[in-house]
Amino acid sequence: MNSLIKEMQALAQELLASGEVKGVFGWTKGSRWYLTPPLFIQKAEDAIKLHYDEFAINNLTSLLLDYRNSDDKIAIFVKGCDSRGILRLIQDKQVNPEKVLVIGLPCPGMVDKEAVKDQRHVHDLPLLRKCQECRYPNPVLADRTLGDVQVTKEPGVPIGITAERAIQKGVGSKGKERYQEVKEIEALSADEKYAFWQKQHEKCLRCYACRNICPACNCRECIFESDKKGWVNKAATTTDNAFFGITRAMHVAGRCVDCGECERVCPAGIPIMKINRKIMQDIDELFGTYDAGTDLEEAGPLNHFKLDDPEEFL
């Protein structure tokens, strides 16, 4: 891992020093041993601040939206799951691929900081559930790669210098069970489902963290941004919260890249991915298996019309 970090720092240093890019998005070591938050650097000498480990959980891709009107080329480090966010932004025409330099990294599998027992001393932590269910541990797109990882559009096992450890920890071991949570909800009666989601939406603070961290939520002006438009009320009532949550889910339908960031950042602990996964499952069943943000050329089943599309609802 240390050699990988050195490679990252050297590459960022070189890219900034040569002027090839004007900024680099990566991660840095945070204030505690279990934190590796995002970092943006613009100076070559700051490259030594870059860090990467099993706490570099943030998907940085939505931060590129701040530069969508900029002429500056920006470099960004991505794990497998993050790289799908880049595809999302390119397909949605929010990011000009010429203005982004994507650097793919092998992923060691991210661990769950919620399980930290000792703030002072390093100890082992369990792998995040989303990493157990991971099907794309390798970047689906990258201009450069480090740590012997390979770019691949296909689901698969981890590749690169962290692969052995990642597989050992269980990265991707539950890939086939990723709709398990959806099945559990589907097994409920309509009333139970309603009660479940009412409880969840009652908790919503309407902080919009889910929306703002999401690479698929890239509208220049969200309809929920303003109450003046009359779409939604500013009152954080269960009904309005549900309206926001469901509308957002439907708007990222077929575009959600399954990075799980919305659920991770929700301060109220709403299991947002359950809705997103339900929609993914439905798309799989209706249109055949489809993973958004894995193939730049493929528009996605909800983005184009085929004569043989299922249309039982019409």
Partner: peptide, 20 residues
Amino acid sequence: RKCINCGTCTYLCPTCHCFD
């Protein structure tokens, strides 16, 4: 640079008092 401009900090903050 890394801020996503969500309202988490302000809504969890016990002193943030801004209202609409």
